[in-house]
Design a protein around this nucleic acid. Structure first.
Length: 317
RNA sequence: GGUGGAGUGGCUGAGCGGCCCAAAGCAACAGCCUGCAAAGCUGUCAACCCACGGGUUCAAAUCCCGUCUCCACCU
């Protein structure tokens, strides 16, 4: 962590359902009291999509209290998206905000997207034709054969990717074949921020979060998630590559089709959500810059604000 | 009350005389992660002798008897 340099951007991370969005809004509101304008930059990969509201727990407009949100509702359902594209778009937003003196607050739980945005890393290029070919090969030959192929081209990368992980093997092959250079295939040990950042993490006891997530999912169904998904069918959610894999949405579709009963769909969604939260934690845990807070803490906002003020070198309240 | 079926790890569930100090999946726990990432993947843990008691057998989770519990059907 780098507490001596003043952060030029705030970032709120953590597993789903920990209240990141609300904390971000409240933080922005608090900062406004100190005369600092802050706006939110969404880093939740499913809240990018227009119309996906209930299932992504998007904060309703009237609960945003006028705090402007960027990178929210910027994609049509059918649009495919990638972390690389997000990196470009979101950085553009951030540099615009900074240029006008607004403090960006990045909020979300999409690990790779946040990493891409906040850290100095560049995605090696891409080649659609090559990729299509590799993906076909993967289907035809299986991951083990593809792994062998990678081994011949880049031993180190091969040693770092499990022979069963077809997805990553394909990407590694793609990179090696187009760049002609070895592919690190592992996350850097050092976290290097592309801008001085103050990271705030929200979490709590696992048992509590697990229960809370279950309730949240049930609530989504009660609020009409299935209706929402129905209305998204005409926009192409079924064929979309990214939006259709959203937890809850894919289960709702299955229940519409009768492949799952409503109860099964809910149960599966709960399970996937809880599993997702676990993966998020295992990702975020290794980022030493994060200042963790307990979302159950009654004085959460005060404590966060106190850290924020100190970091931004604002006079105490 | 009668008939039939079942009782195996936290849950689901295979095994039906020796290869079972008991498969697999889920959950739990840990980890990976550089253009699909709410995705993709890996590892670990978990059954005091498999409801309980007795018996048959060289050998039983597996066969027999009894008890208890559950399910289905019947009167």
């Amino acid at each position: 962590m780098n507490s001596s340099t003043r952060p030029e951007l705030l970032c709120i991370v953590g597993p789903t359902g920990t209240g990141k969005s609300n904390l971000a809004i409240n933080t922005a509101l608090e900062l406004a009291k100190s005369g600092i304008k802050a706006e939110i930059v969404n880093a939740d990969s499913m809240q990018f999509y227009k119309g996906m509201d209930i299932g992504t727990a998007k904060v309703p407009v009237d609960e945003r209290f006028g705090i402007k949100h960027h990178m929210l509702d910027w994609l049509e359902i059918a649009e495919e998206n990638t972390a690389a594209r997000y990196q470009i778009e979101a950085r553009k937003v951030i540099s615009d905000l900074r240029a006008e003196g607004t403090l960006p607050i990045v909020v979300g739980g999409s690990m790779l997207y946040i990493a891409a945005l906040i850290n100095t890393f560049e995605f090696p290029g891409r080649d659609e034709a090559l990729r299509a070919q590799l993906e076909q090969d993967l289907i035809d030959l299986g991951p083990a054969a593809m792994h062998k192929r990678l081994e011949l081209l880049d031993e180190t990368a091969a040693s770092r990717i499990e022979p069963q992980n077809g997805r990553r093997i394909v990407r590694a092959l793609e990179i090696v074949m187009i760049t002609g250079e070895p592919f690190a295939a592992s996350l850097p040990d050092q976290f290097e921020s592309f801008l001085p950042v103050l990271e705030i993490g929200l979490n709590s006891a696992r048992e509590h979060l697990v229960e809370r997530l279950a309730e949240r999912v049930r609530g989504m169904w009660a609020l009409g998630l299935v209706e929402e998904v129905r209305s998204l069918e005409s926009k192409g959610i079924r064929d979309s590559k990214t939006a259709s894999q959203a937890i809850g949405y894919s289960q709702a579709l299955a229940s519409i089709d009768g492949r799952l009963t409503e109860e099964e769909a809910i149960a599966e969604t709960i399970l996937l959500t809880q599993r997702y939260a676990r993966r998020q934690m295992s990702w975020f845990r290794r980022d030493p810059r994060i200042n963790w807070f307990d979302y159950q803490d009654e004085n959460l906002l005060e404590e966060v604000m106190s850290l924020v003020r100190t970091s931004l070198q604002l006079p105490g309240k």
